[in-house]
Amino acid sequence: MSKAVLDALKSKFGDAILETSSKNTDESVTVAVDKLIEVCTFLRDDEKMAFDSPVFLTCIDRLGLPVMEHRFELAVQLRSFTKRHRIRVKVPMEEGKLKVPTLSGLWAGFNWLERETYDMYGVEFEGHPDLRRIYLYDEFKGHPLRKDFPKDLRFPLARREWADE
């Protein structure tokens, strides 16, 4: 069912679609960063697409994997209530250039999810209305879900001042 979406995207955007796959019954499409907004607007507004609802938005860090073309990859899952289909839009990103245009303008639900991804991976969403940490606190340094962040590196805010005698 969602194959039709992939075909439509391929025929409409051509080169901007870097890759499509439909493995494990999940359809996904890889899009270049600069075409993301265009593709997403099409996905939302076109009558045959009608992806009206956000599902999730996260980032994949491939540091240390044997096959690593791009270190980071943004994964955006969308769903359509009317057409009952789903698609995952993926955006490759390079380290040092972790900047993506925000999707919160298209689907309000991405607001917090983008904040979460910023918090965990340090992806900056340009044009986001309120981009700050959501799970962690301002004193926290770094982005914990990156693969080079040690699992138990803590930045304590409070510790007791006195010990039992």
Binding site: D52, S53, P54
Partner: peptide
């Protein structure tokens, strides 16, 4: 509509 756009 809001509910759908917010991913409720």
């Amino acid at each position: 509509d809001d509910a759908i756009a917010y991913g409720l």
